[in-house]
Amino acid sequence: MSLEFLNAFKFQKKNTFVHNLDPRAKLLFSIVYSISALMFTEIVPLFIIFLTLIPMILLGKMVKEWIRSIRGLSFLVIMIIVLNTFFISLGYAIAMIIRISIMITAFSIFFLTVHPNDLALSLISMKVPYPYAFSFSLAFRFVPTIANEAQNIMDAQQSRGYEMKTSGLINQIKNLFPLLVPLIICSIKRAFNVAEALESRAFGSFKDRTYYYIIEYKFKDWLFTIYLICFFIITIYVRIHFSFMPEWFAWEMGV
């Protein structure tokens, strides 16, 4: 098992329409799409929502990264298919896969196109206190580092005979200890080191601070926000008046 797929959520600097959008607009985008996906359990509306995401992927030139993030979650997809087909139906399982793909894609677009510094700045502009905004952006920045560390721990344990796959639930839980204990210890140590490094650079010594970069909501951001609001209103309208929609809209797999 490789944790390399987590790199698919790592910011990549590119000069595209999506990258140049304000981080707040992109945060709104991820939230709107996730809520919209949660509103439906039918294949057709979910698939339509999913299709509206494709232009964003193409505009952001991140097809490869997106495929990688989806591929990395293949295990989860298999689990959803197996459990939902077994307990509910195959149609419901497919709907759930589309739903989770929408949510992953929306957040993947956000993480791939928002620099951690911009994330902190956008939180500050939403009146979140700087230490909290900074901690949040720092946590976000450390995701690939921790993924990398988890991979190294896995390699070190496998080199001394650790087997990833064991039978039985209790054994599988027990089997997580050799990975989780070193990962938690290393993460705590890193957190202390980062805290010391920050303090040694006078973090928090002044209550008010200025910023070198200032983010601005431009015309294209407003345009994008209007699109999101319209999209959200339509989604809510469709949900409320679902019974008045054409028959094909509520199509269900007969399996």
Binding site: S159, F177, C186
Partner: peptide
């Protein structure tokens, strides 16, 4: 293989 960081394996 003995990896660089010994902290990665003690638990």
């Amino acid at each position: 293989i003995i990896f660089q960081n010994p902290q990665h394996q003690v638990f």
